Computed example of a mutant assay.
Amino acid sequence: MLLPLRMLLLCVHFVLASLLGLLVSICRPFNPDNSRIAARFYAVPAQYILGLRMRLELDGVLKHQRPAVIVANHLSNYDLFVFGHAVPPRTVTLGKTSLKWIPFFGQLYWLAGNVLIDRGNAIQAKKAMLTTTDTLQHKDMSIWVFAEGTRGHGKGLAPLKKGAFQMAINAGVPIIPLCANNYVRGMNLNRWRSGTVVMRALAPIPTAGMTLDDMPELMAKCHAQMKACIDELDREAGTLASKA
Rank of each mutant, 00 (worst) to 15 (best):
residue 91 T to F: 12
residue 114 N to T: 07
residue 70 I to D: 01
residue 79 D to M: 02
residue 145 V to Q: 08
residue 110 W to G: 00
residue 89 P to R: 15
residue 132 T to V: 15
residue 135 T to V: 13
residue 146 F to K: 04
residue 158 A to C: 00
residue 102 I to M: 13
residue 111 L to N: 07
residue 101 W to C: 04
residue 159 P to V: 12
residue 139 K to V: 00
residue 164 A to F: 05
residue 102 I to F: 14
residue 136 L to S: 08
residue 165 F to W: 07
residue 107 Q to D: 00
residue 82 V to Y: 06
residue 93 T to R: 12
residue 121 N to E: 07
residue 168 A to E: 11
residue 76 S to R: 09
residue 130 L to N: 14
residue 157 L to Y: 06
residue 165 F to L: 06
residue 164 A to W: 09
residue 122 A to C: 01
residue 83 F to L: 12
residue 119 R to M: 02
residue 116 L to Y: 14
residue 111 L to M: 10
residue 118 D to G: 02
residue 90 R to K: 14
residue 157 L to P: 00
residue 101 W to R: 13
residue 87 V to H: 10
residue 107 Q to S: 01
residue 131 T to G: 12
residue 140 D to S: 07
residue 143 I to R: 03
residue 166 Q to F: 15
residue 75 L to V: 15
residue 131 T to S: 14
residue 118 D to Q: 04
residue 111 L to V: 06
residue 161 K to Q: 12
residue 116 L to V: 10
residue 92 V to H: 05
residue 97 T to C: 05
residue 154 G to D: 00
residue 168 A to L: 12
residue 158 A to Y: 11
residue 102 I to P: 07
residue 154 G to F: 00
residue 111 L to E: 08
residue 79 D to S: 05
residue 128 A to P: 07
residue 168 A to G: 09
residue 168 A to T: 13
residue 147 A to R: 10
residue 92 V to W: 01
residue 98 S to H: 02
residue 136 L to W: 11
residue 168 A to N: 10
residue 112 A to G: 07
residue 170 N to Q: 13
residue 167 M to R: 09
residue 121 N to Q: 09
residue 120 G to I: 03
residue 116 L to Q: 11
residue 98 S to W: 03
residue 76 S to A: 09
residue 123 I to W: 13
residue 129 M to E: 13
residue 167 M to T: 10
